[in-house]
Amino acid sequence: MMEVRLLVAVVDDDESVREALPDLLREFGYAVRAFSSAQAFLASDCIGQTKCLILDIAMPGMSGLQLQRELRQRGQAIPVVFITAHADESVRPRVLEQGAAACLLKPFSEEALLAALSAAFRGN
């Protein structure tokens, strides 16, 4: 019997994040797809299978917040864990208020990422 692994999508314009984060998530036992932009994720065939979205807030073109809004408008209730390199304290409460499961400041620890994923899968 095949083990069904939850699909986590990583959307970040930073190539180093798109390379390192999926490896870590696979070690945790998740299936992973990585995208360089919100538009690339929206154009993919995996929106319906994605169980959690790890999403950079600030990206060229469509931001992480705009992607979250677009998915909501499409009726896709995918839990979101935002990640950001910008230490703007006003952003975190705002994204949590808009339904994000967590907001992590880069660089974050494996423990912080696991806790954020747990919150996302619990539906916080």
Rank of each mutant, 00 (worst) to 15 (best):
E3P: 00
E3V: 06
E3L: 01
V4K: 09
V4C: 00
L7C: 11
V8M: 04
A9L: 10
V11L: 10
D13T: 09
D14P: 00
S16P: 01
V17A: 13
R18N: 15
A20T: 09
L21Y: 04
L21N: 05
P22T: 05
D23Q: 08
D23G: 08
L24V: 14
E27T: 14
G29V: 01
R33I: 01
S36Y: 02
A40C: 02
A40H: 09
F41Q: 10
D45Y: 00
D45I: 00
Q49T: 05
D56V: 04
D56T: 05
G61A: 03
S63E: 08
S63P: 07
G64N: 06
L65H: 06
L67Y: 04
R69E: 11
E70W: 00
Q73Y: 00
R74E: 05
R74M: 06
R74D: 01
A77P: 00
P79W: 10
V81Q: 12
A85W: 02
H86T: 10
A87M: 03
D88R: 09
D88Y: 04
E89C: 00
V91Q: 14
R92A: 08
V95F: 11
V95W: 12
Q98N: 11
Q98F: 03
A101P: 14
A102E: 15
A102L: 05
L104H: 11
L104V: 11
L104F: 09
F108Q: 05
S109C: 05
L114T: 08
A115K: 08
A116T: 12
A119S: 15
A119K: 14
A120Y: 12
A120V: 13
F121T: 10
R122A: 15
G123C: 13
